[in-house]
């Protein structure tokens, strides 16, 4: 019973509730788009996970910067947690985009700017995590990983503006400050996208929070092992 109660985090409940509303809106409430048909509903998954992957790199970059500034372990933990969740969201962004591209563009992938820069974002996440995985633990690794984290954020504005700067098959920006008024979503579609994005954002925050706690536990284990071996050495001496 306690285990079940432990899982019932307020963020998870909020995310699940919003996800339920979003699913109702996506599959029942919102009208089918005239040109693309049912497949257009992929938008309500694709855009929120893409937003999650960009939010992830912002958090990685911001917390990496804070780590470089304050040298506090909590910022490093937040960066790792966000990178790991970000790689999940980034992978889903690419997969959902490819599945959507097949019926609409008749290809799984094109080499256009929006797609390529999104793929680079995924590689940045992977490179960040690989770097941490292969280098020996310590302040040096944290500092250098933080530098990669800060550099990685350069890709985010390029992804956002890519569809407008190098206009090809990918639709232009439909949300945010650079959205073209003519291409922006109508009210029904906008509401569904907003609810879905909120649901995935809460899910993102919940996952980062959970991963952060795990990272803290991992650090505790290292600390306990260190203390245990130190006391064993004292006993031997």
């Amino acid at each position: 019973m306690n285990k079940i109660l432990d899982l019932l985090d307020p963020l998870l409940i909020l995310s699940a509730a919003l996800m339920g509303v979003a699913l109702y809106l996506i599959f029942i409430w919102v009208p089918t788009e005239t040109n693309q048909g049912a497949v257009q509903r992929i938008l309500y998954f694709h855009v929120p996970v893409a937003w999650g992957s960009m939010l992830g790199i912002f958090v990685v970059s911001g917390s990496s910067f804070m780590y470089l500034l304050k040298k506090n372990e909590k910022w490093d933990r937040l960066a790792v947690a966000s990178a790991e969740v970000g790689v999940i969201f980034g992978g889903l962004m690419l997969l959902s985009g490819m599945i959507w591209a097949r019926p609409v563009w008749a290809v799984w992938w094109t080499g256009e700017a929006k797609l390529t820069t999104a793929l680079i974002l995924f590689f940045i996440y992977v490179a960040y995590l690989m770097f941490r995985g292969y280098f020996p633990p310590g302040a040096q690794r944290q500092r250098l990983a933080a530098i990669i984290g800060v550099i990685g954020a350069i890709d985010t504005p390029i992804i956002y503006f890519a569809a407008n700067l190098w206009s090809q098959a990918h639709p232009p920006i439909i949300t945010g400050p650079a959205a073209d008024a003519e291409s922006a979503l109508g009210s029904d579609l906008g509401i569904v996208l907003l609810v879905s994005t909120l649901a995935f954002t809460f899910l993102f925050v919940f996952m980062v929070q959970t991963r952060y706690k795990i990272r803290k536990s991992e650090d505790d284990v290292i600390e306990l092992k260190r203390a245990s071996s130190a006391s064993a050495m004292t006993g031997v001496n």
Partner: peptide, 25 residues
């Protein structure tokens, strides 16, 4: 990472000049 970013953006610019994507409608 920086090099990969620069190359991909350049390649995309080159490819966009050569191909017109199909139009659905």
């Amino acid at each position: 990472l920086i090099l990969a970013l620069a190359v991909s953006v350049s390649l995309t610019q080159i490819s966009s000049a050569e191909h017109t994507p199909p139009v659905n409608g």
